[in-house]
Design a protein around this nucleic acid. Structure first.
Lengths: 223, 223, 223, 223
DNA sequence: TATGAATGAGCATTCATTCAT
DNA sequence: CATGAATGAATGCTCATTCAT
């Protein structure tokens, strides 16, 4: 594991190396189980230097989360062409998302797995990032509704739930794509579009799936 | 915290108390950050007794995961009436799922948040549980496809992806429902059905959403 | 150094041993320079046990200060017979003081040397103890003034300064007696009485030493 | 804190700055708790330079003690006019002492609080300084005895004890004056003279306070 | 059935100190 | 004259685990 010991690097370089290493370690083990020694060793440096540059384990963890969150949102944002139709924008966003998570699995693990399981300071970062993405998606959905001439569109709470569901599905598919050899980012994105778009469309068209009455033996609305 | 110190309980009762306590603690802090002392204190017992009954922290964590996973799958299974149509079965399964996660938030946290962030022995348990549920859903989808006379139905990999997406969306919505006051299990289930069923239906009907050609400026299939 | 390793002592006994050892170590090195390991080793026990029983180094240090301060004030108080004349009471108090500091040199070092050099929480304990003793002495002086029929006695600030001086002289003489072989507690007490009593008496009698005018070449009042 | 970063100073100047800073830091925290970084930062310089000029923390601490001790003894010596009567000399010495400790509280803290609480090398410096002052005072006392024609004067050991007591009282009063707003150096000196001179005088005059016989119920010699 | 006593191992963090530039 | 990079050693503290009772 331990990298070659390289001497006398400029601080900026070392800091990037440390963040890279920390993302690996934190992605694998989580913040609590990871040790500063592991990170230091992976960089090929001794522990005090990590503390000197990144101050504390919490600070290091936070820095990892921030960097990876910024990279992910930036990748999604950069993948989208603002001028194209809403479904196309969603498709592009999803492809960019799955491409990024496939290329940075440990960073994705830090965000999706580890950051949420530790106390508020960290989970809040994720909530913020997720909110940003969810808001982006929500806007797309509303725009799509407007494009289909259905003002004022679906109620906000319903959209909030849908965006949550979409985000959750996307996260799950990212893990699935990473764990299943042969599944490309494109396929993951297509799966999610297939899964979601028609449902969204039906909702926009005011043809929602109707839950049956609460009597468990009653016939369903769809049959 | 710290329960009243109760003396001389039968082992079976104590073990259940310990698992209950451990689920709380593990659900909040995660396996690594949790301490055996906390669990013991919550039960009102001393640490060596926890070791005597549950052997080790890892064993205790595993036992928690197993119990909660079994409870969740059992709850879903028990909520479904085998004779009714497929969409109805899915609806029932989702309602049971959200009902259970709402009633056992710490157990759900153990399964959804904590068990996946620790090494293989634990994540494998979750993978198994998830596979069971996914398989159940997949079967429902295939049955629905047969009911709609579309043999042989969609390709298996596509269905696997859809089931993953559905499971991810469900997990996310469970967290969302738990964190958002005023969202009932029924609403969460309806949101997910709305989100998913039409998409699934379209897929069954061989009307999938078609990804555009890779030229990012090409018009999309849906517009 | 390290004591014989004795197994399985009752907690109360171990705690006393730990305080004894800690007083030695802290008295020699001071709080910062002392290590928990040293204390543990001196007791013949491992470090975690010290933490288990006394919580933290700060808590241990505080406990030492409190115990030694209580022991010293108690020794002084117990040495005095309330019914006898004031000079006699002062004499008894001083003898008890020097006897105690001679018998517990490390405890005295903790109080006189170490506790005052660390932050407020500790210094405050010493200030409190010192205030108690100084107040006791002040009262004696005022009583002596009344006994000599000199109402209302000397001004309070002057007495405060005198008590400070007396306390400082006593502390210094305690160190001197401990460091100089052949100097008994009795001798130290007599030295201080000789040093102080006549001065106090003169003050009571309204015959203070008069500082000369500020001209440094002026003749002094005493010549 | 943190001074402005000033570049390229002559070594002698830098060394003085470092000693100034170190006296502050050591006076506040003590040798062990102080860090070289603090000192360096206070000077506006980086740590290796402090090592380059002052070699080690111990050396720096020693240098502080030596400088402050020399300054204090010099101040006392300079305040005294050799030709004047003994009590006047003592008065002048005390005034100079309290003036100096009031103007250099951190230096005084280093000498009175910190230097004595660390191992032998440092305490020895203080012992030496104290011995110098004590010897000076002792000589004054003996001279005063001769001036009063009482050869051969009091026994040396008694005088040694008295000088110790005087030094201790002086130290205590210096702290008291520094900590009590409104108490001037002059007042502190007067307090000590009042406290001590008459006692010394009585001793010279062969009218010592007589300790009572060891029977605690016996009447005292003074009543 | 349950606990008090004790420990071994690991970990974050700090800091004096060195060396190359 | 001065600093950036780096480390070795120590230290407070936590915690799972064991054992005797």
């Amino acid at each position: 594991m331990g990298a070659v010991r390289t001497r006398r690097m400029p601080r900026a370089v070392r800091e990037r190396q440390m963040l890279d290493a920390a993302v690996q370690i934190f992605g694998w083990r989580g913040c609590t189980a990871a040790s500063m020694d592991e990170t230091a060793e992976l960089v090929g440096v001794f522990k005090p230097l990590v503390h000197l540059y990144l101050n504390s384990k919490e600070a290091l963890f936070t820095a990892c989360i921030r960097r990876e969150a910024a990279a992910l949102t930036e990748a999604v944002r950069a993948g989208v062409h603002p001028g194209v139709p809403a479904d196309r924008q969603l498709w592009e966003a999803l492809r960019a998302f799955f491409r990024h998570t496939a290329r940075h699995p440990e960073g994705w693990a830090v965000l999706h797995l580890q950051a949420r399981t530790h106390g508020e300071p960290f989970a809040a970062e994720i909530v913020a990032m997720r909110a940003e993405i969810v808001e982006f998606v929500t806007r797309l959905i509303l725009v799509a509704a407007r494009e289909a001439h259905h003002d004022p569109g679906p109620p906000e709470r319903a959209v909030a739930g849908l965006a949550e569901a979409l985000a959750g599905a996307a996260g799950s598919l990212a893990d699935w794509a990473n764990a299943t050899p042969g599944v490309s980012a494109r396929q993951a994105a297509a799966t999610l579009m297939n899964f979601a778009w028609a449902g969204l469309g039906d909702l926009m068209e005011d043809r929602p799936w109707t839950p049956p009455a609460d009597d468990p033996t009653a016939p369903t609305a769809l049959t």
